[in-house]
Nucleic acid binder design. Structure first.
Lengths: 147, 147
DNA sequence: AGTGCTATTGCAAAATGTTGCAATAAACCC
DNA sequence: GGGTTTATTGCAACATTTTGCAATAGCACT
């Protein structure tokens, strides 16, 4: 797993400057990725702004929004959008292509890679979609929320 | 395909009143569904508010938002969320469970139903997801946007 | 360390969403 | 039509997100 320093290199490589706001934002993102699996409500715009207002009160909201967008473009994080709202995931060294998300509790989990590959192949046959850069999201009700 | 009148019946059946705003909103939704396939940028909150401000200038934003939520609950429309924004689809008489969406141009198309059923079965085996109410969204690049 | 270039920020104003509450008007009965 | 009930609306205040622009501060070069 990549570390803070590696990510700073990514910024530099993309002609982006290292600012206090970016350091802290990166650290926040890295810290949120403590478990192998993906948990609910990890990184949201709300949690980020709450954190930043606490740690770096000087930072303006607009900078946070702009940096989140920038990190998305660099594929440091990935945005998962649901009707109930969006959240972000650290995916720099392990880009996730296949999740399943519970419509009820919002829990997002990484899907089975073998299944993903099979589906990807089937998709390629049937639809006009290129294989590269495909990602799949399943929405359903998890065993806990059942019904 | 259901018509305006049928939808009004749905509202009544759910103890909801017929107001001018709802009439026009329903009509807007029905009008946007002129083709069999699903096209880009059809119904967004922006397009709705623009339309309503033109046709019924008196209607408040909050009423529009609340009615959109209400129509979602009644499964008259379905919300598709993407990092680039959300849009809505009329799905009352043809609820769509399976799409593919181009990450580049945003074009959303209805997926192949046979494939959907196969995937659904595989999912049920592998994940802890209940079969009911499953929906699947594929993100990728369409043949037009390529790569 | 000082200088120059320019990416980034803060700021302010606007756009877009959300919420509680009192006023309004659909719908039903007579 | 007039009266009653209550779902719906408009309003106002607030929260969130977006945008243009001038000021700031990273960074490269000396």
């Amino acid at each position: 797993m990549k570390k803070h320093k590696d990510l700073l290199q990514v910024l530099k490589a993309n002609n982006m400057r290292i600012t206090p706001a970016r350091r802290f934002l990166l650290q926040f993102i890295l810290d949120s990725k403590k478990h192998a699996g993906i948990k609910t409500g990890q990184i949201t715009l709300k949690s980020i702004t709450r954190f930043m207002e606490k740690i770096l009160p000087g930072v303006n909201r607009s900078s946070i929004y702009r940096n989140i967008e920038a990190f998305k473009k660099l594929d440091i994080i990935q945005e998962i959008s649901l009707p109930s709202g969006s959240f972000f995931q650290y995916v720099f060294d392990c880009k996730v292509h296949h999740f399943y998300i519970c419509k009820s509790c919002g829990k997002a989990s990484v899907g089975n890679e073998k299944l993903f590959n099979k589906i990807e192949a089937a998709l390629k046959d049937i639809h006009g979609f290129a294989k590269a850069n495909l990602s799949i999201v399943f929405y359903g009700y998890c065993s806990k929320c059942g019904h």
